[in-house]
Design a protein around this nucleic acid. Structure first.
Length: 455
RNA sequence: UCCCCAGUAGCUCAAUCGGCAGAGCGGGUGACUGUUAAUCACUAGGUUCGCGGUUCAAGUCCGUGCUGGGGAGCCA
């Protein structure tokens, strides 16, 4: 069963007398005496074309072959006399591995809508667009690890099941081993206390930054929010670096470097796949990516952002006032109209940010930052963490958080505390940025959204 | 969760004022000696999302539910 992947076959430097290709039929064109069969095996966006002369056996096999069938074709790799491809297979044998009933196979040669393809999420990776998407997704994940590895960051596997509502950020999914209807008190449950799926690995990551220096987590996170937008799902992946002996400026430097690195990596490693998105999904994709690569991100204190928004000749639905959180319309105005490039807004009012963000000397803002990018909105959210035990305790009290619940977190400030900073980046949002895809459900294999758990 | 829009053949859509439900693609059959989302001919294919109402008559109007999409909130 030794096969050559189509990607390798198409990159061949010379003809080959013997080659075996296996893949799924994208299209078949019959002529008198011979047929063209185009195969895709997922190794690349491109198909390979096989030309097969008819014999009684071949014709019988071809009769069972339609779009979607999987086949094994043996023959020779030869230069193609036709236009459109350098190499093709001169087929000598054709074996049908799996038929696809043409009456019921849902994928046709023509383009489908994204909405329809979501209803067949198990088959959509067989399309050009979603094949390209998931190759890019894989490459992007590898690039994340390489970026951090090259910089000496350690990869920490923070827990998926957690026992405390880490940040108080967002609704959490309950984890239980109890049968429905049984005594649902947490005392009887597996852990003897309430358990949830994590919403962030940050607090755990901080412990390891304050031990190993520079670390990151990259894993799934869960939000039980009933939010129905093209930018939210219940299960998504987040990248969370955490650095000891670093401040907010270091944090913003890292985020900017990382975004640029990831874009460059994908452009270098997935040119065909990215080109598909630039051509069919977002005509402005390449200029957008080049802008992000080439421009220095704007760094704008929250207070100045408010001034800009107040002076803007623009009718905002939500009135602008110091102390409020920026609304979607404000974020879009800043990065799309005012600056036309990614913008860091930093030093937010402490009242709208979580307890662990470091209090600034003005007493009213914290060292928080959000990275806003055109079309996506918030790509990165981070902060310098509050390393001073007394200040941290005061903030927790003000926010009615129990000291006992966070005893281990507070220990890091009791014993050898140090300045540190980190951020979270939504992996899917980065993928949306790189591909120009506007719905997060189309950058995930099997997206989880309210009332949707089919696959 | 709130606001708006949509739901008609396998897919993408059309159907004028409420008056016989249609096209392209896809499928099937056949033709064709180099095709490129091949081409040409023929052909099959419908509970117009569900329920209720108005009307001589409803795909079309009204109510309601479901599903999908967009915007907002929450956020990554």
């Amino acid at each position: 069963m030794k096969r050559t992947k189509i990607r390798a076959a198409l990159e061949a430097t010379g003809p080959m007398d013997e080659i075996v290709i296996m893949g799924w039929v994208r299209t078949k064109r019959d002529s008198k005496g011979f047929s063209f069969v185009e195969l895709n095996d997922g190794s690349t966006l491109l198909n390979i074309q096989a030309v097969i002369d008819h014999t009684p056996e071949i014709e019988a096999a071809l009769h069972r072959v339609g779009t979607g069938a999987s086949v094994r074709i043996g023959g020779a790799l030869v230069e193609s006399p036709g236009k459109g491809q350098k190499w093709e297979i001169r087929g000598r044998s054709l074996e049908v591995l799996g038929e696809a009933d043409q009456e019921t196979f849902p994928l046709q040669k023509k383009r489908h809508s994204d909405e329809f393809l979501r209803t067949i999420a198990h088959l959509r990776p067989r399309t050009n667009k979603f094949g390209a998407m998931f190759r890019i997704r894989s490459e992007l994940a590898q690039a994340v690890h390489r970026f951090f590895s090259d910089k000496g960051f350690f990869y920490i596997h923070t827990p998926i099941i957690t026992g405390s509502d880490c940040e108080g950020a967002g609704e959490m999914f309950r984890v239980t081993s109890l049968e429905p209807g049984s005594d649902a008190s947490a005392d009887n449950d597996f852990f003897g206390k309430p358990a949830q799926l994590t919403v962030s690995g940050q607090l755990s990551a901080e412990m390891f930054a304050l031990s190993l220096g520079e670390v990151y987590t990259f894993g799934p996170t869960f939000r039980a929010e009933n939010s129905n937008t093209p930018r939210h799902v219940a299960e998504f992946w987040m990248i969370e670096p955490e650095m000891a002996f670093a401040d907010l400026a270091d944090d913003m430097d890292l985020g900017e470097e990382m975004v640029k690195y990831l874009i460059t990596h994908i452009l270098d490693h997935c040119p065909n796949d990215v080109e598909l998105f630039a051509k069919w999904v977002d005509k402005g994709l390449m200029p957008t990516l080049e802008t992000i690569q080439g421009e220095t991100f704007e760094r704008l204190p929250y207070t100045e952002a408010i001034d800009i928004l107040k002076k803007a000749k623009k009718d905002f639905e939500y009135p602008v006032e110091w102390g409020m959180d920026l609304q979607t319309e404000h974020e879009r105005f800043l990065c799309e109209e005012q600056f036309g490039k990614p913008v860091y807004v930093y030093d937010y009012p402490k009242t709208i940010k979580p307890f662990y963000m470091r209090l600034n000397d003005d007493g009213r803002t914290v060292a928080a930052m959000d990275c806003l990018v055109p079309r996506i909105g918030e790509l990165i959210g981070g902060s310098q963490r509050e390393e001073r035990l007394d200040v941290l305790l005061a903030r927790m009290q003000a926010m009615h958080l129990s000291e006992e619940d966070y005893w281990w977190y507070l220990d890091s400030r009791r014993f050898g505390t140090a300045p540190h900073a980190g951020f979270g980046m939504g992996f899917e949002r980065m993928l949306m940025l790189v591909t120009g895809v506007t719905n997060i459900r189309d950058v995930m294999p099997f997206p989880r959204t309210p009332n949707s758990l089919e696959f």
